[in-house]
């Protein structure tokens, strides 16, 4: 049983506020880390100054570092965490598979291939065209998985198809990199593939915010339909759900969110796997609560992971994908172990 089914709505609202406060604090901490440490208070003052609430005199260089580099980075981390976790929650519910998430199903690998094609084969590499390339790659990978898993999309077959998709698209990415990139490009692409928030700026944050907001709205509008999938597609259809339409709308939304996030920060695994399970434990399986809880928790997790990635071998930065994998793989093992115990 979830904690929520015992609690009252006011308890839930308080918890949501607490997580939101933790997220804001984590963002303030993330902004403070770097060669020039900045206190969370200074960050807060910089923000309130900018929106006209205060006029606290701050050092110009600190304000520049906060606005030009670190705040956009922390916000992109939060938005990507929310988007990837939300995508994982949707995939787990639609495919009725506790291991489904964009990375495991190869959708992130497909998005990487699409983005790398845009980057190296040169179709103009702005944030937007990268996202379009990544979206194409994500959809291609998803179609590959659906076709390979066939009509009987059992949990095992879908995951196996995802493994094949990951291999195929990672191979394609490597092929493109080794035939088209010079040494420096290859190095930067490989670093980006492991996940990196360095280099993201305000246009990225704006695009991620728009895509996440739209994605969250679409998913929330389908919360009841997702609940109806609890006992499978036939049961959903018997409850009056237009199964085909809901699947297409939500899978395209998932591919779009994943592609946007991957095109900015690389393929970061396991956020989409771990966070929905944690959120389900906190608020229960009903999607009207689960989806916002997943987004919020995913945002907090990713900002914390970014902080860890910069502190653990400072002054160097560990790729963010390494940190999420270090948390995600043990979690993946626990789910597998529990599934084996249950059967």
């Amino acid at each position: 049983m979830s904690l929520a089914s015992a609690g009252r709505p006011s308890v839930l609202a308080l918890s949501a506020l607490a997580v939101l406060a933790a997220l804001l604090l984590a963002i303030a901490l993330a902004v403070g880390i770097g060669e020039m440490p900045i206190s969370p208070l200074t960050t807060l003052q910089a923000v309130t100054n900018r929106i006209g609430l205060t006029e606290v005199p701050l050092k110009r260089i600190e304000e520049a570092v906060i606005w030009d580099y670190r705040l956009s980075r922390a916000l992109v981390a939060a938005l990507c965490g929310a988007g990837l976790a939300l995508s994982g929650a949707i995939l787990q519910s639609l495919l009725r598979n506790p291991l489904a998430e964009p990375y495991v199903l190869g959708i992130s690998a497909g998005a990487s291939t699409g983005a790398v094609m845009v980057m190296l084969l040169g179709f103009g590499a702005g944030t937007f065209s990268l996202s379009v390339g990544a979206f194409g790659g994500a959809l291609a990978a998803f179609l590959f998985v659906v076709l390979l898993a066939g009509n009987r999309q059992t949990a095992d077959r879908t995951i196996l198809a995802g493994v094949a998709a990951s291999q195929l698209f990672n191979a394609l990415t490597s092929w493109i990199v080794s035939t088209s990139a010079n040494a420096e490009q290859a190095r930067s692409v490989m670093f980006w593939l492991l996940g990196s928030f360095s280099g993201v700026r305000w246009p990225d944050a704006a695009l991620a915010a728009v895509v996440l907001a739209a994605g969250l709205l679409v998913c929330l509008a389908h919360a009841r339909a997702l609940d109806a999938f609890t006992f499978g597609e036939d049961a959903a259809r018997a409850l009056g759900i237009d199964v085909r339409r809901v699947r297409v709308v939500l899978l395209v939304t998932t591919a779009l969110m994943t592609a946007t996030m991957v095109s900015m920060v690389g393929a970061i695994g396991f956020v989409g796997l771990v966070i929905p399970h944690a959120a389900r434990f906190l608020v229960g399986p009903g999607h009207a609560r689960l989806l916002p809880a997943t987004a919020l928790t995913g945002a907090l997790f990713m900002v914390l992971a970014d902080i860890v990635s910069r502190l653990i071998i400072a002054p160097q930065i560990l790729p963010i994908g390494v940190v999420t994998a270090l948390v995600g793989v043990p979690f993946f093992s626990v789910i597998l172990y529990r599934a084996r115990a249950a059967s």
């Binding site: 009725r96 506790p98 006992f231 499978g232 389900r280």
Partner: peptide, 9 residues
């Protein structure tokens, strides 16, 4: 249905 199953709690 005769076999309604789910892994959701």
């Amino acid at each position: 249905d005769q076999h309604a199953t789910t892994e959701t709690a």
